[in-house]
Design a protein around this nucleic acid. Sequence first.
RNA 1: GCCCGAGUGGCGGAAUGGUAGACGCAGCGGAUUCAAAAUCCGCCGCCUUUGCAGGUGUGAGAGUUCGAGUCUCUCCUCGGGCACCA
Length: 928
Amino acid sequence: MSENNWKYNAKEIELKWQAVWNQLDLFKSEVNQSKTKYYVLEMFPYPSGRIHMGHVRNYTMGDVVARYKMAKGYNVLHPMGWDAFGMPAENAAMEKKIHPSEWTYQNIDTMREQLKPMGLSIDWSREFATCDPDYYGQQQTLFLDMLEAGLAYRKNAIVNWDPVDQTVLANEQVEEGRGWRSGALVERRELVQWFFKISEFSDDLLKSVEQLANWPEKVKLMQKNWIGKSIGSEIEFQLENAPDGFPNLNVYTTRPDTIYGMSFAGISPNHPLAIFLGKNSKKISAFISDCEKIGNTEAAIDTAEKKGVDTKIRVVHPLIKNKSVPLYIANFILMDYGTGAIFGCPAHDQRDLDFAKKYSLEITPVIQPAGQMESSTRVTNTAYTGPGTLINSDFLNGKNIPDAKNSIVKHLENLKIGKTRTNFRLRDWGISRQRYWGCPIPVIHCESCGVVPEDRQNLPVLLPKNVDFSTPGNPLNKNLDWRQVDCPKCGRQSLRETDTMDTFVDSSWYFVRFTDPSSTDPTNKRSADYWMNVDQYIGGVEHAILHLLYSRFFSRAMHITNHLPKKSKEPFSALFTQGMVCHETYSTCTFKIENATGTLNLGSELRGLKSKSKTTIRFMISKDEFVVFKPRKSFAVGETITTADGRIKADLVAVENEWHPPEAVTETQHSKDQAKSLISSGAPVEVGGSIKMSKSKKNVVDPIDIIEQYGADTARWFMMSDSPPERDVEWTTSGVEGAWRHIQKVWKLTKDILIETSPEDNKSSEKIRNSISELEIARNQAIKGVTDGIESFSFNKAVAKLYEFTNILARSLAPKEYKLTSLRTMAILMQPLTPHLSEEIWSKLGNREVLLKQEWPLWDEGLLQREQIILPIQLNGKKKAEISVKRDVSNEEIEEMILENDKVQKYLNGTKPRKIIIVPGRIVNVVL
RNA sequence: GCCCGAGUGGCGGAAUGGUAGACGCAGCGGAUUCAAAAUCCGCCGCCUUUGCAGGUGUGAGAGUUCGAGUCUCUCCUCGGGCACCA
């Protein structure tokens, strides 16, 4: 064997094994009732154009799990597809004059080719994109079934309108009052929209969260909060001088116990009564349109005053004789929560208190905090919302809040003006999008028949090929060729629905489609029954609410419409949310100057370096020469800057901050205080904190470059090694090099062991026997450590165990046969993480069959510890000594040894210990 | 404002209530080399000490315990989610 054959050429070896796996079709999965299935899925990517490090991390994790489960003997399903509808394709169409479809499929091709070198154990035969007519056609079938089942409906709704993307956004897609994609301030508009009746499942979605044992607590909590259940009562109030058609007012409250503290009532500006009153009152209609303008941004809400207009209508207090309170239209009341109307109890609700103070309304405390005298119950600027005793409340006086609630609800029920009602924060899911690149909603609007579902035999309703993106808005509206169709019911010329579905619909059932992507129905029940649920789902925490909640809804809806067996009510048995991939940022400041005077002939651009306390501007003349201007805390455009010696002056005309990619910056020097600088110009760069890789900050490392340079195994190993998977990981060059070194080390170790020749009688010496035992212990510990690590999603710990095992094996004096056994184990244990290297080692060890088919090893509990162990001895809880004992030594013997121990005797100083606590095999504590 | 979560060396991070700092990165010293890279060996929390050794140490303070990074309470800092939801 020549030296050359042993050089580890990652690229060559990785390609070789990928070809072998491919040829053997190892990752193809089929229904096999005799084997236990395991469905592992990573959230499928949006085909943006290139694979990024976040994908690498996500898919490596999934792959580790998939390969481990394969080795454990499961029938594993590990598919991949593309979440391919969405706005970037349309933006590309507008900017680059390329058809969204073409753009999308090109990106998919690129990304598929970029994923393949990673050596993922994916069943590519199941691949599809959500923009494939076959997929979205099946989605249209689902839609029609949901329409029939009453789970999809149309209603007039005030919607969040994104003026930049010219589309409607779901509440979930509005972040801090801005569109989640465009970042534009969202406006309110009234439109007829399609909705899914997710609210029908509010209670079930909430209750079932509890049963998701293998979901992160954090995600479960977020889901619960989002659904937001509250139990309260609806109370009917009589109105005085209300217009015809509005005899009374229904109000929702969670605090019926505070009804005696009511001093006003309020309705939302969108309340039907408010709108009616607006028709006859300029003041009211002006107020309503004012409210429309105020956005729901965080800032707007924070600063928005509580405002209202008095309707002059009086609300009769149902329990206090001859008492009535004013009815206001108030800006802080939401139409789509509860009944859109409230009663105000200023003493015990902060918003009501703010409002009451502004309009000088009565404030009557009705809850007295525990331990306070009645006289000391004063009203301040803070409403009291804690526990206490009822006061000023007639028959409720003296009761605590829960008892008062019970009594008042019963009382109101008897009077037939109140009933218990549960409210949810969760609203129905608006799915209409005024966009081209999405799944068309398969209905037709007929003048005589109304909304008519498309005939199923006409599905899929294909997106038209000809689209014009030259004007804003939905291109489908303008495409009359496509829009004009005959009504399926009466045959009259009608118009197609031009709304397409929210792309979250596409991703709400793709995991079911993977179980049989070629099925002529949305699902093949036999396959779905076998493969569902997803046993392990892995993805970013940013989908903790929307995507997961919608998918949970879809599973329920698909069960009702007979597309899924009941056991799939919860689609994801286990969920893991991984952290982001971060990197340092590098920036320079460029200062532009004019009118430079002095002895040097300066150009017009200067580099600056900012630190916490000061900014230094220096003009680079060459790599080593520069002119330094007087440092200051900050510089402003328009200032005149001078060098310290005053010889050069210049006017600062612009300051530009510029980000630089990692490859443009010098490596860390071997000294702490040596700053990083630009390779091109030598200009110093400011090193910023490690944040999520993003194009805008240019702190991106392209995975393809890394795989080219080091190989996929190195990238995979590093990704799994540094941080716990749920946390963010910082991508560092030195870390990657460390991973690469380790791969080389394992390879060299393989070589060394294989060419080793050992003498025959080498087992006789005690030293060798100890080595054998030590290696066996390390091997068993590695099996346990790696198995536990993978099972518990602590890949970093699995990696650490493999490092340890490698180090011990590399130094071991055990004979060759033992080392070979260890090497075999190591190849199997490393296989999920570094599949190519492991296969190569496996074949070098003389195995004919691929490593992938090898069974996962088991460890021997008896071989995890040496016979002779070190037992630490604590004195009053502090470690002071240790003794070496046999593993199965008795407590009596230990006690004897301890009392004889020099150190212990020194501390005991002739006295007897008060107590000796022995934790077998772990520790001894002597209490003095 | 409400609800979560997290604070451990220079850094990423280990630690069923039982030897704090596994493993990796960075750093330091040595071997090898004409030299460097690569590789190998050793050191590496802080303070005192030439050394032996001793003290101290997991954001701060208290508590439970034979024993606390881990459990309880209070506080501080950072991160995340929700946010006029009656």
